[in-house]
């Protein structure tokens, strides 16, 4: 009993960074003795009391919904809850046989990877630039941070309008340049549009972390390198980059989670998953099938698939993070 409690406690600081349940889960999966050094309780009462708020949250926000999803995934059910027929694995079979679902999975994969890398590169470039600007640094920083204060739905509505082929000013410029821009009829344009909107909304988040990480690079190291004659680029490459790498890795994972789950608002406002389902990511499909089409069985089956994905990601994250990030107090 005690070792598992102790490891769960060790997971707690990570829980602050990620959703709590994943921390607890990873803690159980990857036990380690290091954490025992200082945070160790002899009695179980206090430990249980300290754990209980987290456990209650887990119960209501993870276990109960998961159980609901599991119980719905194997039935066809009347949305009003009156009648239900057990159908075994049919919801899953139909899902994997569905061309639309496979497309959605493929789209989600490329969409999350692309927005992830573009976001990191742009945010990295901006953070690097800010690090080397002396005048009006705070003004720049504030401007770059502004998009983070805008809700995804508002971002989406704005992008949808700017790029609307009938009335959008940006679409007008594109047309003037001879580009046949039309996200209503050209699936690729729609995918580009939601990618741009998602990146724009998330750059600031990455930017904050990268700026902070770069500020934390000891000035003495850089000065020493400068005295040794290293160029600015070389100092960045050999000193700053390795020291901010843990942050980059952390952001890489956060961006994944953002791309997978949090771009819903943008997609709903910009394309509604269209045209012809070309921007329907896995999460958007869960919503469409569950809350618009009221096909609760299929929607629950899709949620289970997503949950499995999330669990898999979490395990990978913590395996990798444990190696790269030092949590030692």
């Amino acid at each position: 009993m005690q070792p598992s409690e102790a490891t769960a406690l060790k997971g707690a600081p990570k829980g602050a960074l990620f959703s709590g349940w994943s921390a607890g889960l990873a803690g159980l999966l990857a036990p380690s003795e290091e954490g025992l050094k200082r945070s160790y309780f002899k009695g179980t009462g206090l430990a249980a009391a300290l754990l209980s708020p987290q456990l209650i949250i887990l119960l209501f926000f993870f276990f109960v919904p998961s159980w609901k999803a599991l119980s719905l995934a194997f039935v066809q059910i009347d949305p009003f809850g009156g009648k239900s027929v057990f159908v075994g694995l049919r919801n899953f079979v139909e899902l994997f046989a569905s061309e639309n679902y496979r497309y959605s999975a493929w789209l989600t994969f490329w969409f999350t990877i692309t927005q992830n890398i573009i976001t990191l590169v742009i945010a990295g470039a901006l953070a690097f630039a800010i690090d080397h600007i002396v005048r009006a640094r705070y003004a720049y920083r504030t401007v770059i941070l502004l998009p983070y204060a805008i809700a995804p739905v508002v971002t989406g509505a704005m992008w949808a309008f700017l790029f609307n082929p009938s009335v959008g000013p940006v679409a007008g410029w594109l047309h003037a340049m001879g580009l046949p821009w039309d996200p209503n009829l050209r699936p690729w344009d729609a995918v580009v549009l939601i990618t741009m909107a998602s990146v724009w909304n998330h750059i600031c988040y990455d930017f904050i972390f990268l700026t902070a990480a770069m500020l934390a690079v000891p000035q003495s190291l850089r000065e020493a390198a400068a005295i040794d004659g290293a160029s600015q680029w070389r100092r960045f490459r050999t000193i700053t980059v390795p020291l901010v790498m843990p942050t980059v890795f952390y952001l890489f994972i956060i961006n994944f989670v953002y791309g997978l789950f949090d771009t819903f608002g943008i997609i709903d406002a910009v394309t509604r998953g269209g045209p012809a389902g070309s921007t329907t990511t896995l999460v958007y499909k869960v919503y469409q099938d569950g809350f618009v089409n009221l096909n609760l069985g299929s929607s629950a089956a899709q949620s289970i698939v997503l949950m499995a994905l999330a669990v898999l990601f979490t395990i990978l994250q913590f395996r990798a993070l444990d190696r790269r990030v030092n949590y030692q107090v």
Partner: peptide
Amino acid sequence: NSNQTSAILVEEIQAAWTGQ
């Protein structure tokens, strides 16, 4: 479940319009 079949109809017609 007419909401669902209408959504399907629209999605498929859009696939014709986009040329897929």
